[in-house]
């Protein structure tokens, strides 16, 4: 295969995925634009945004990779059932996803303290992260499993589905739930 053919095959393979991610990213950006108004109420809120978004990819990308390897190896079946491996992977993702969200709230607060910047209270950051962490985990874990199982059943290689699905769903739902939980904490506190 010539260099030119190689070039085109890589380009064609990756472009649709990146364009889907672009749409998710633009939607997330619109939500972020709306979130900027809340920064006055919660100074330092913007520090959490990129960390929270990156975590979605790190936690649920790993879950997706694990599930698709499990499917390929025949260790799990493409349906919701009481399979020890499936249940363990889901429970571990809930712990990782919610746990790291709380950690993000804490390290954001610490970073602002060290920098000496204006900051919302620690319990406000942790509250926002806890609520959005829980909501995103539920939607991401079940949404991802439904997509992978359906894709696998219809003959798509789950390896190719995981990356774009995580990026797009994570951007959209991550930002939506972040905005929602900022609203909830604003009302409660």
């Amino acid at each position: 295969m010539g260099v030119w053919d190689d070039f085109w095959s890589i380009y064609r393979e990756a472009l649709p995925i990146l364009l889907i991610a672009l749409c998710g990213g633009l939607f997330a950006g619109l939500v972020l634009e709306g979130l900027i108004e809340s920064v006055e109420r919660f100074p330092g809120l913007l520090v959490m945004v990129p960390v929270f978004l990156a975590t979605r990819g790190n936690v649920y990308g790993a879950l997706g990779g694990r599930i698709s390897s499990g499917l390929h190896q025949g260790l799990i079946e493409p349906r919701f059932e009481r399979n020890d491996r499936l249940v363990n992977a889901v429970v571990a993702s809930f712990i990782n996803g919610i746990g790291i969200s709380v950690v993000i709230g804490v390290i954001t607060w610490l970073a602002l303290l060290i920098l000496g910047w204006d900051s919302a209270a620690l319990y406000e950051f942790v509250g926002i992260m806890l609520i959005s962490g829980v909501l995103t985990s539920v939607v991401m874990i079940f949404g991802l499993l439904i997509l992978i199982f359906a894709g696998y059943t219809y003959g798509y290689d789950p390896d190719n589905l995981v990356g774009p699905a995580v990026t797009t769903l994570g951007d959209i739902f991550g930002m939506l739930f972040l905005l929602l939980s900022v609203g909830i904490v604003e009302v409660i506190v």
Binding site: L46, V47, M48, V49, P50, V51, A54, T55, N58, V59, A62, R66, G70, L75, D84, R85, N88, A89, V91, A92, S93, I95, N96, G99, I100, V103, I104, I107, T108, A111, L115
Partner: peptide, 28 residues
């Protein structure tokens, strides 16, 4: 596939990654 081993392997990496991306947050 044990919960303990998945969380134990991943959580330290997640914390490290969060600290790296914190720089992006501070810039924002």
């Amino acid at each position: 596939w044990e919960v303990r081993s998945i969380v134990g392997n991943m959580f330290p990496l997640l914390i490290l990654l969060s600290i790296i991306v914190l720089m992006a947050g501070i810039t924002l």
